Amino acid sequence: MSVPGRMLLLGVLLANLSLAGLALPARAEKLVVVLAAERIGITSSFSGTQVVAITVVERDGQSISRSGAYDAVALIRGPERTQVTRRKVRWAGLWVNGPSRTYVGAPTYFAAIANRPFADIAGDDLRAEHNIGLDFLRLSTRGRLPGDVDDKAFRDAFVAAKRTDGLYVESDRGVTFINDTVLRASFPLPANTPVGSYKIDVLLLSQGAIVARGEASIDLVKEGFEASVFRASREQPLLYGLASVVLAIAMGWMAGIVFRRN
């Protein structure tokens, strides 16, 4: 190839590289989420605890500049299970179970916390997409069509019951900015928190848009004598059942001796 031809080819390659560089998106922030503990042991004396997540916002020279302060939302989701909400009805002078809704894959624990009111941080569309807040938590029902007139009443009752038990939490004061690039999120876990794996999502927002996201996980496990009994009930159910029957008989026999009247 002649020298002019090589120069022309080099010019074309440089132009393409320049255009490719312009087409690349500006680098955004990166979140690093660190937990105070990644495993919590549950014993008979467990009375609840707090899960604390420290998040660091990492920026470099290529990160785009932001106007205004950051906002942050932290979400934690516990093990998913099928759960049922029932409505009591009066029949023949008695209160009995009536209509119900079955929620498939509903989180046994869910918390959404932020540094200020959710409505001031993001719009409804973004909140619905990312389950930001209890009003926007997606719950799938079995055997019912969306839009059923009774669905909202059942859903509200389900969420209200979970909130009463401390298993569904929403707070606009759970996230605190220690400084411009470090924030602290604290989730309350009540004594009745189910064991299992919990997933934590931290969303960093600017002017109503998500600019970075970080994840972490924490495990709640049974420990001590309770853990041994739990494992035995799962791994050797026959022996566990026989031992329970023998123990019940022995306790009944001992009670009969203690309270026997002469």
Rank of each mutant, 00 (worst) to 15 (best):
Met1Cys: 12
Pro4Lys: 01
Arg6Ser: 11
Met7Ser: 12
Ala15Met: 14
Ala15Asp: 10
Gly21Trp: 12
Val32Trp: 08
Val34Lys: 11
Leu35Arg: 07
Ser44Pro: 08
Gly48Leu: 02
Val51Ser: 05
Ile54Val: 14
Arg59Pro: 05
Ile64Met: 11
Asp71Lys: 01
Ala74Tyr: 01
Ala74Glu: 03
Arg77Gly: 05
Pro79Gln: 01
Arg81Val: 15
Arg86Leu: 15
Arg86Glu: 14
Arg87Asn: 11
Val89Trp: 08
Leu94Lys: 14
Leu94Trp: 14
Gly98Pro: 00
Pro99Phe: 07
Thr102Val: 01
Tyr103Pro: 04
Tyr109Cys: 06
Ala112Ile: 06
Ile113Trp: 04
Arg116Val: 04
Ala119Tyr: 10
Ala119Glu: 09
Ile121Gln: 03
Asn131Phe: 15
Arg138Met: 12
Arg138Ile: 12
Leu139Asn: 06
Thr141Ala: 09
Gly143Pro: 04
Gly143Arg: 07
Ala153Asn: 13
Asp165Val: 14
Val169Gly: 04
Ser171Arg: 00
Gly174Tyr: 06
Thr176Phe: 09
Arg184Leu: 01
Phe187Ser: 03
Phe187Val: 03
Pro194Tyr: 00
Gly196Leu: 00
Gly196Tyr: 01
Asp201Lys: 11
Leu204Arg: 05
Leu204Thr: 04
Ile210Met: 10
Val211Thr: 06
Val211Asp: 05
Ala212Gly: 08
Glu215Lys: 15
Gly224Glu: 03
Glu235Gly: 04
Pro237Cys: 00
Leu238Cys: 06
Leu239Ser: 01
Tyr240Ile: 00
Ala243Asp: 07
Val245Ala: 05
Ala248Tyr: 02
Ala250Ile: 11
Gly256Thr: 04
Gly256His: 09
Gly256Ile: 05
Phe259Tyr: 08
